[in-house]
Amino acid sequence: MNLEQLRKIRERAAKELNLRSGKARVKVIVGMGTSGIAAGARDVLAAFLDEIGKRELTDIIVTQSGERGLASSEPVVEVHLEGKPTVVYGHVTPELARRIVSEHLVNGNPVTDHVIEVRE
């Protein structure tokens, strides 16, 4: 690896991070730090994968990250929809995860009462 190669990887990866590549329309990030896992993030991640699988949705990426800080609201899940503000959910349960899939990811309506942050 040299600097040039690093730059190329950055450009490619940056696109993916911005959701502009391929057919992914939605990215779901589940906070999987120790606080998140302790609050049940593993079950939430599983529920997302299961619900997305059941509905045969192919344009959604589910990924993990560390914790964002608000430990008292874990598990925390972030949803990026192309062209929409990023929505962050707190206190996500497996049930809520399934609702987020149907209401937010599919129908585009955030589950407002569990939103803890909206970012452009």
Partner: peptide
Amino acid sequence: NCGLIDPENIEEYIAT
């Protein structure tokens, strides 16, 4: 980056 990138994916880190 905490809470934004996948810590197990070095490419996401490189992207930032």
